[in-house]
């Protein structure tokens, strides 16, 4: 059983929902990432979504764009990101790690070579924002061979037909984008999300995570009431941006926020 599947199974039997914080790898500098991952796990993260910096993050708002730019100033590559996960795995062999990013760095590496290297580094799942199921056949096959879960997006514009397409290729969980827009926007409509998720459950048995627009314990709790996992990104990355000059204080500050979000997720409203 994959680490992601195991984690969702354990949470389900404990009647809990997953909290998945997102950070961009190498932001604001490469040395920050691994200690920060450990701090977030200690504060209650169930899975970690690690952003792979990309020069053209088309689906991201200004907060995560800036994070990519900070990481790229340090020339953080996909190879470096795998090294970070390898280091993280030296002391944490349980917490699933998902890479989130854009296709091109993986495309240039080569699907098969990348998937083997990623699996060896201890990566459990990959989410490529600009790879819809229609183009993902070869990619998904390569990830399967390396036992890496492929996480796909669904959104408010996805109809039943698209839900089926995604369900057939997805493994680990499905990531539902809560609104039409980019990361970091403030447009969450929990009622609309609940309606769409009810529909989605008819098309898949996979756990469903919801991301985009979750900014505090309250919204985390509202989403946890209807989803299996709550993904929080821009709020955390914004805190990193505010602490660029004091990188040593980043793990503790974000841990405090993750703990707050945890309490929200654990009291679904």
């Amino acid at each position: 059983m994959s680490r992601i599947k195991q984690r969702f199974a354990d949470l389900k039997s404990a009647n809990r929902k997953a909290l998945i914080p997102y950070i961009t790898a190498g932001d604001p500098q490469p040395g920050t990432t691994v200690p920060l991952m450990h701090a977030m796990v200690a504060a209650g993260a169930d899975l970690i979504e690690l952003g792979v910096p990309f020069s053209d993050p088309m689906a991201d708002g200004p907060v995560i764009q800036a994070a990519c730019e900070r990481a790229l100033e340090h020339h953080v590559t996909l190879h470096n990101v795998l090294d970070m996960v390898r280091e993280f795995r030296q002391t944490d062999t349980d917490t699933p790690v998902i890479l989130m990013g854009y296709l091109n760095p993986i495309e240039v590496w080569g699907y098969s070579d990348f998937s083997q290297a990623a699996a060896a580094a201890g990566i459990d799942g990959v989410l490529t924002v600009d790879l819809p199921p229609e183009e993902a056949g070869e990619f998904t096959a390569a990830m399967r061979d390396a036992a890496i879960d492929t996480i796909f997006l669904l959104s408010p514009t996805s109809d039943g037909n698209r839900m089926d397409k995604v369900s057939q290729l997805a493994s680990g969980f499905i990531y539902y984008v809560s609104f039409k827009g980019v990361t970091g926007a403030n447009r969450l409509d929990v009622t609309a999300v609940a309606d769409k998720l009810a529909d989605l459950r008819k098309h898949t048995d996979l756990p469903v995570g919801v991301g985009f627009g979750i900014r505090d314990a309250e919204t985390a709790g509202q989403v946890a009431a209807v989803a299996d996992a709550v993904v929080v990104g821009s709020v955390l990355v914004k805190q990193i941006a505010d602490l660029v000059d004091q990188p040593d204080s980043i793990p503790a500050t974000l841990a405090a926020t993750v703990a707050e979000l945890r309490s929200g997720v654990d009291s679904p409203a």
Partner: peptide, 20 residues
Amino acid sequence: ERGHFGPYGGRFVAETLMLP
């Protein structure tokens, strides 16, 4: 039909834009 010129072209966008 899906916009491929040999290996090129296609539709590599986030899910929200697929139906539009």
